[in-house]
Design a protein around this nucleic acid. Structure first.
Lengths: 203, 203
DNA sequence: TGTACATCAGTGAACGCGCGTTCACTGATGTAC
DNA sequence: TGTACATCAGTGAACGCGCGTTCACTGATGTAC
C-alpha cells in the first residue's frame, strides 16, 4: 500500500489523471489547466512536472484514458455484436458516452491534439480497429474498411450534434431511438444486407 | 465611402469579424481572444466593446457568419440538388468547408457555445432546414426529418473525424471519394430508393 | 542493525505572459439654430 | 454659412486573474557497506 498523506504522494501520476477527469466532469466547458489539476490533486503547482513533460502530455494522457474507457463502455454494451441490432446497441453506447462525458469527449476529439502522442495514437487506432471488427462480424464479405468508416462517422456525427445541442437530446430514450433509426437506415442499405435480403421478409 | 485611417474606424464591427476570421485561418488551433482581434483590427484593446457586449458575443457572431458562409458554400456546390449524386456533391462541399476552415468549423461546432445567441440559433436552424429541404427534394415521400438528421450526422461525423486526423485526409480527392461512398451507402437504403428501385437497373 | 549517501518526488517563490473587463477620458462627427 | 453642443466611437491606463514553466531547494526513501 502506498502511504497516503505523506510527503511522497504514492501515485501522483494516476492522481493527476483522476483529478483531471473530475474537473472535466464538473465543468463541461473548461479547458484543462495543469495548475487546476495540481490543485485538485492537493499538490503544488509544479509537482505534476515530475510525471508529465508539459500540459500537452497530461491532456494526451487524459484523452488516451478516455479512449480506453470508451472502448470498455462499448464492449459492455455488447461483447460481440454480430447483427445490425446489436451493432446499433453499441452505437447507442457510443453516443451515450459522449453525452455523459461531454468535456472528456471534447478533449478526446474536438481539440486539436498532439499527433505525436503514442499513447493517444494507439488508443484511437484501437477504437477504429474495434469498429472494423464489429462491422466485419456483422456483415461478413463486405468491404469492412469502407463501411466501418461510414458507421463510425455516422455515430460520431450524432454524438457531436447532440453534444452541440443541434438535435433533440431531451431524454436518453429519444437519443437512443434516433441513433438506432439512423444506424438501421444505414444498415438496410449495405451490400451484405441486400445480398441476404431474399432470405428475409421483404418490405 | 467610410473614411479609412481616421479616428473613427468606419465599420469596426465588420472589421472585428474580418480580423477574427483571419486569426482563425492563420492559427488553426488558437482560441479567439478579444485583445488579439482588436490588435489585428489595428485598434485599442477596448474598442470592440463598442460593438460586442463581451468575448462571447464576438465568438457567436463569428460562428454565425461561418454558418452563413457554409450555407453559401453548399448552395454553390449545387443550387437545387434532387438526386443522390447531387446530394453527395453537397456533402462533399460540407466536408471540404470543414477541412478548408478547420478553426472556424471548430468555433462553429466544437466549442461549447452560447445557446442564447439569436444570431447563432437562427443560423444553425437555417442549415438544418436547408438539409431537410434537400432530402425532401431528393426523396419525396420519405420522413425527411429523420433522414435529414441521419444525413447531417453522417457528413458532420466525416468532417470531424477528418479534421481530427482520424481518417485518411491525404488529398481532397480521397476525402471526396470517401464522402461520396458513405453517402451512397446511406442512400441506397432509403425507403424512397427501395420504392423506386424497380424503375431502375437492379444490381 | 546502523550509518552515509545517492536518488527521488515533492515544495514554493518567482518569471513573464496574455487575458477580459472597467473606467474616465478625448477626438471626431453630425445636427439645430 | 457658421457656431454651439450633444452624441458617438474611439483611447490608454489600470485592475486582478490564472496560466505554463524555471529554478534552487528540501524532505523522504532506499540502498551499500
Amino acid at each position: 500500500m502506498p502511504p497516503t498523506g505523506t510527503y511522497h504522494h504514492g501515485d501522483l501520476r494516476a492522481a493527476c489523471l483522476q483529478a483531471a477527469r473530475e474537473l472535466l466532469e464538473e465543468d463541461g466547458s473548461a479547458g484543462l489547466s495543469l495548475r487546476a489539476v495540481a490543485r485538485r490533486a492537493g499538490v503544488s503547482a509544479t509537482a505534476p512536472y515530475r510525471h508529465y513533460a508539459d500540459r500537452e502530455a497530461l491532456v494526451s494522457a487524459v484523452a488516451a484514458e478516455g479512449y480506453r474507457e470508451l472502448a470498455g463502455h462499448l464492449a459492455a454494451a455488447h461483447p460481440a455484436p454480430s447483427t445490425p441490432g446489436e451493432l446499433a446497441d453499441v452505437a447507442v453506447a457510443y453516443v451515450r458516452f459522449a453525452l455523459e462525458h461531454p468535456a472528456l469527449f471534447r478533449a478526446m476529439f474536438a481539440e486539436p491534439c498532439d499527433p505525436t502522442s503514442e499513447e493517444r495514437v494507439a488508443a484511437t487506432a484501437a477504437i477504429s480497429e474495434y469498429v472494423r471488427g464489429i462491422v466485419r462480424a456483422t456483415f461478413p464479405g463486405v468491404d469492412a474498411e469502407a463501411l466501418s468508416t461510414t458507421v463510425w462517422a455516422l455515430v460520431h456525427g450524432l454524438a457531436f450534434l447532440h453534444l452541440d445541442g443541434k438535435l433533440d437530446a431531451s431524454s436518453p430514450e429519444v437519443v437512443a431511438a434516433q441513433v438506432r433509426s439512423a444506424v438501421h437506415a444505414l444498415f438496410n442499405a449495405s451490400p451484405a444486407m441486400a445480398q441476404s435480403a431474399t432470405a428475409r421478409t421483404a418490405g
